[in-house]
Simulated assay, not measured.
Amino acid sequence: MTEIDDIALSVADPEAAARFYSGLLRRRPLEANADHAVFVLSPGRTLSLWRGGEGLSPAQVDFPLAASAAVDELHIDWWDRGSRIVLPPADDDGGRSFLARDPDGNRLRVYAAA
Rank of each mutant, 00 (worst) to 15 (best):
M1P: 04
M1Q: 09
I4S: 02
D5I: 12
D6N: 14
I7A: 13
I7L: 14
L9M: 03
L9P: 06
S10E: 10
S10H: 11
S10D: 15
S10K: 09
V11F: 09
V11R: 10
D13E: 15
D13F: 07
P14H: 01
E15Y: 00
E15H: 09
E15T: 15
E15W: 00
E15D: 12
A16Q: 14
A18W: 03
R19F: 06
R19E: 12
F20S: 01
Y21L: 06
Y21D: 11
S22P: 00
L25F: 00
L25W: 00
R27Y: 03
A32N: 03
A32Y: 07
A34R: 12
A34C: 00
D35S: 12
H36I: 04
F39D: 05
F39V: 03
V40E: 15
L41H: 00
L41F: 05
S42Y: 01
P43T: 01
R45V: 14
T46A: 07
S48W: 06
S48H: 08
W50T: 05
W50R: 05
G53I: 09
G53D: 10
E54L: 09
E54F: 04
E54P: 13
G55F: 01
G55L: 09
L56D: 01
S57T: 05
S57R: 15
S57C: 01
P58H: 10
V61D: 04
P64D: 02
L65K: 09
L65G: 06
A66N: 04
S68C: 09
S68L: 07
A69D: 14
V71L: 09
E73T: 14
I76M: 12
D77F: 06
W78M: 11
W78A: 07
R81T: 00
R81A: 15
S83R: 12
S83K: 13
S83W: 02
V86R: 15
V86C: 08
L87Y: 07
P88F: 05
P89E: 04
A90E: 15
A90T: 07
A90G: 12
D91S: 14
D92I: 10
D92G: 11
D93V: 11
D93A: 15
G94N: 14
G94F: 14
G95W: 03
R96T: 05
S97V: 02
A100I: 02
A100H: 00
A100R: 04
R101F: 01
R101I: 02
D102V: 04
D102I: 05
P103F: 08
D104E: 09
D104Q: 07
N106D: 07
R109S: 08
R109Y: 03
V110P: 01
V110G: 01
Y111K: 02
A114I: 03
A114F: 03
A114H: 01
